[in-house]
């Protein structure tokens, strides 16, 4: 129970993951769905980065001379999450392009109205 108050980054990222998941799943508006997807992804990135962070160490950049492995935080999650951001941006752009197409063809971006229409 006390981990709720000491590991606040992880707890916060879990709450954000829930909020993003619910926004992606339950909202009818497509733009809000896409924003929810972005929130969900960044919450997972925050979880990863918080796992790589070690208190009292500096960023993994060598300034002047190398201070040994013990002086820096774990650089692997940062490198992975950079790839994750690229993926999130490309999926977002693709989904927004589909949203524009949907509006051109159906005249609305509310998903429940679109699903009621027959596609013909």
């Amino acid at each position: 129970m006390e981990m709720l108050f000491t590991k606040y980054f992880e707890v916060g990222s879990m709450v954000l993951f829930g909020v993003g998941f619910m926004t992606l799943l339950l909202h009818n508006n497509l733009i809000k769905k896409i924003i929810g997807m972005n929130i969900m992804d960044t919450a997972v990135f925050l979880f990863f980065i918080a796992k790589g962070y070690i208190d009292g160490r500096e960023a993994p950049i060598v300034r002047g001379f190398h201070k040994g492995v013990e002086a820096y935080v774990n650089p692997v999650p940062a490198a992975l999450m950079l790839t994750g951001i690229v993926i999130a941006v490309s999926v977002t752009a693709f989904a927004l392009a589909l949203t524009v197409k949907i509006y051109e063809k159906y005249g609305t971006i509310e998903l429940d109205e679109i699903m009621k229409m027959r596609g013909d």
Partner: peptide
């Protein structure tokens, strides 16, 4: 028309 709808469902 129905193509874009199906893709959107798949993507979400």
């Amino acid at each position: 028309k129905e193509n874009i709808k199906a893709t959107l469902k798949y993507l979400v």
